[in-house]
Amino acid sequence: MTTPRRQDATSVRPITDPDVAVAVDTLARAFADYPYTRHVVAADRHGERIRRYQELCLTRVGMVHGRVWVADEGRAVAVWAVPDQDPSPALVELAPILVELSGDRAAVAASADAAVEPHRPEGPAWFLQTVATAPEAQGKGLGTAVLLPGIEEAESAGFPAYLETSDVANVRFYERLGFEIIADVRLPDDGPRTWCMRREPRLR
């Protein structure tokens, strides 16, 4: 399988500060009722918690220690962790905040993370942290387009790309981009089914 061609590539670019507000709103709306976040984030003030969580993932992890692309001024956004930038210092700093955001689901969140950890790449890889397209921007190919720069860069550098999804509808979408299921995990504590997916580089 060859690398898929980028769709509507002229609308895709690295994120800039003016895009942040729209990108955070896109992510917050996309994950408000997502099975995984419903499972690991407290129900009270759930929307506020999700918005803050996605804001931290975008601005403190992706934009500082990874790569972020947007389309349509942030109505589609993809956040990657990359092999040559270590996010550990930011994650250590953010850990207490993330626990607080999980609220009474903090222990459940820890169990869910532990359940998928064995399937994550042991070596260097591009790790898709979060991706979303705003409802009003869907159906235009922007979800695919905003993912392709990361897929292509991982491919050209010879690294695998990895992601996790708890929405069965997403599995076929990612398979079309060359990802394969490497684990099908039922999260503990009556959690949602979660698929770990990996895309091996084809170029040698």
Rank of each mutant, 00 (worst) to 15 (best):
T3F: 08
R5G: 09
R5M: 12
A9C: 12
P14K: 09
T16S: 12
A21K: 11
A21E: 14
V22C: 13
D25I: 09
D25K: 07
R29W: 03
R29G: 15
A30P: 05
Y34S: 07
Y36A: 11
H39D: 02
V41A: 10
D44M: 07
R45K: 14
G47K: 07
R49D: 10
I50R: 06
I50M: 12
I50S: 11
E55H: 11
E55K: 09
L56K: 01
L58F: 11
V61S: 10
V64E: 13
H65N: 12
R67V: 12
R75K: 14
A81D: 15
V82D: 02
V82K: 06
V82L: 00
P87C: 12
A95M: 04
P96F: 07
P96T: 06
R105F: 03
A106Q: 08
A106E: 06
A107F: 13
A109M: 09
S111C: 14
R120E: 11
A125W: 06
T133F: 00
T133I: 05
P135L: 11
G139I: 02
G141A: 03
G143M: 10
L147Y: 04
P149R: 07
E153S: 07
G158D: 06
P160D: 04
Y162W: 11
Y162S: 09
T165E: 04
S166E: 00
D167E: 13
V171T: 10
F173Y: 13
Y174M: 03
L177I: 03
I182M: 12
L187C: 08
P188G: 01
T194A: 15
P201G: 13
L203V: 10
